[in-house]
Design a binder for these strands. Structure first.
Lengths: 223, 223, 223, 223
DNA sequence: TATGAATGAGCATTCATTCAT
DNA sequence: TATGAATGAATGCTCATTCAT
């Protein structure tokens, strides 16, 4: 058996499914390194150990290939988070576990995260649509969490209006913090998640409780 | 035939300074519309009303040109923020005015913002370095603010370690919220800034005060 | 799982002859639709319901395949014409029946005709040789007819020299008229054949009879 | 002067107009040799002594380039014919001079003729439209000639219906005869034109005069 | 100063063709 | 017999960049 693996016949003849995974793996790697535009199909095919025609036959054009990468990685991320969250838990625990799962994913799947965050956010191309949609979904989920939480604590008007915006802010903060964390691996994911949790959850709690910050002199806020 | 025809006004001999501004304006516009890679030097030269060799003579290669755009726009943003902040004010007011200036800038200079946020973040060309440096500077400023604030309120250890990370989170939250706001122009910049201020400042205040969130059951945090 | 599933009827083991016909049919169809170059072996194999390796095994390379198509269809055409012509008849009747058979074939086998006329004429691949040879054969046949006819009516020198050229002209006229006819299906094949017959036969008859057209002023013909 | 021509500066800097002609010349040559599909832009650029980007800048995509070739050559042909024909002459003389001009053109501009006849006729591609249109125009002109002629001689019904078809036949005959002639250069263009003129003009004259050919036994024509 | 003219170099894509099974 | 899997080799096209004027 091991001999077979060491000396593959000149041309490995693998089932489509396997090849597709190989290709996607290579593509994620290359896209994550060079970015969408600077990534060449040649390099991907080389890294995948597969000729270009196979890529086109199985995954389609460059754009399709990229979209497939995004879709796969985004699904992985979402699944990871979903797996972490317990639906029955109170909102804060859900958020907490969601954040932890998120940071764990970022820490373990650096390349996936880079593709998702760096490339797809960039701009243009029909794929960013796909990713922005998933980002919006994440925001909506957080929003729902915030709403539930606020409701249970007695929502006031100020909080009501702001939940969607704050959900967006939280997602952005998570992304940015994830980037920061990649440069500071000495901190554990648990700690990082804790910081963010404090910032956001406590801050939001204050808002809900009517414990709001306002400029000392109201007129200072005038534009 | 006549003297006028031999020296048509078409060939304007403009001072270098003016040409450079024309070119940068055009470049920002085109980069912001198509993204760095899809923007072609041809289109930029056309929009600028200047031939390509001039662009190369004045601003250098495409990368240089892009970096120049980033630099100019980032400087504008930073100046706008700096102008809003009063150095003598207490930390919260500084942050408040900084945020307000930031959102005002985003609202008024949409193209600039798009170039800064979308293009430069995207992929690690040599230019993103430039931008990341400025982003880091912003983070450092916020960090300093947080430190000052925490110090004045009696910093505890938990807060000390976290300031830089939280500054990064805040910057990310601001960016993300700015994007959200561009899709929800019905909200005033003041209100948006207020939301973020509450979230962050109050949350950070809680942290400093030792009023921290922790998982209900500590063991839940185990990975 | 069951025996039936292990030997699905899907894999028909057909005799070579049948497969070849399937393939040729498909090839004629595809070539006639897209032209030689734009026709892809993939599409042919798909239309034929046969995998590509089979095509190569049975009919050889693309060029060979095309040549085989040409040969088959040209043979069909020639047979159709030969069947119409009665060898015993006088030359004019032979030509007449030949033309009729030709137009009938064009009307009934449009795809065959398109392959023969459009594709093969077009470009000097090595296949067009094959077709040009058959075309030359047709011209030679017509030439023989003209010679016989002229001889029987007392050939003069002018006619002698011209028969081969006129045969070529007649073949070209037939082809062109066939194309015209495909766009004017309201005319019957008999009528069309009649027109051409008149034009050519009568004109040739005049020539043989010495009833020739000459420029009014001979010097007009000088170049 | 001659020295300058022998040692051009490394990069000749010619006005656009000149380059376009060079490119078109090369394109006609290459297309005529290899056919549209087998002609590569690389070879054209090489033959033209110009880099590919210039071709694209000046003449556009391959299809556009080909269409430009067709258009130029077709215009040359039509102009050559138009120049030969004297509008005031009687129909037969017009046809005569038209044919003579046509054969002269074919003899002198073999490459042009090959591009026009072989390539464009082939099929598919959006360019053949362009050429077919010009062919139709030629047919229409001949048709008009036939109609005028028939009218002046007392047109009968049989002739009336057939003119358009016969015009198509004549054009096809000319093309085919031109091809034949290219293989038989020993015959003068004048003689060839004379043969065709006789065939067609006399035959058509017979038709107009009611001197028609019919199958000996009418029932022979039944299908 | 200012530009039309020119190109090297690369990239996505496709297709006929052939193994290994 | 029959085919899914695999590729070498082109080819059309684009773009940043630079001369020669």
């Amino acid at each position: 058996m091991s001999v077979d693996e060491r000396r593959p016949t000149k041309v490995k003849r693998l089932p489509r499914e396997v090849r597709e995974r190989q290709i996607l793996d290579a593509a994620v790697r290359v896209f994550s390194q060079h970015g969408y535009h600077n990534a060449s199909m040649d390099e991907i095919s080389e890294v995948a150990g597969v000729s270009k025609p196979m890529i086109y036959a199985y995954l389609g054009h460059k754009e399709d290939l990229f979209a497939a990468c995004i879709r796969r990685e985004a699904t992985l991320l979402i699944d990871a988070i979903a797996e972490g969250v317990q639906v029955e838990s109170p909102p804060d625990m859900q958020l907490w576990h969601g954040l932890r799962a998120f940071f764990r994913f970022v820490g373990e799947q650096k390349e996936s995260w880079r593709v998702l965050h760096r490339q797809a956010t960039s701009q243009g191309g029909p794929f960013s649509d796909e990713l922005l949609a998933m980002r919006d979904r994440a925001i909506a989920l957080v929003d729902a969490l915030l709403v539930r939480s606020a409701t249970s604590r007695g929502m006031n008007e100020a909080a009501t209006k702001s939940t969607e915006a704050l959900a967006a802010a939280l997602v952005g903060a998570s992304e940015s913090l994830a980037d920061w964390w990649l440069d500071h691996p000495e901190v554990s994911d648990k700690v990082v998640a804790g910081w963010l949790m404090n910032l956001v959850w406590m801050g939001f709690g204050d808002l809900v409780d009517g414990n709001v910050w306002t400029p000392v002199k109201p007129e200072d806020g005038q534009s």
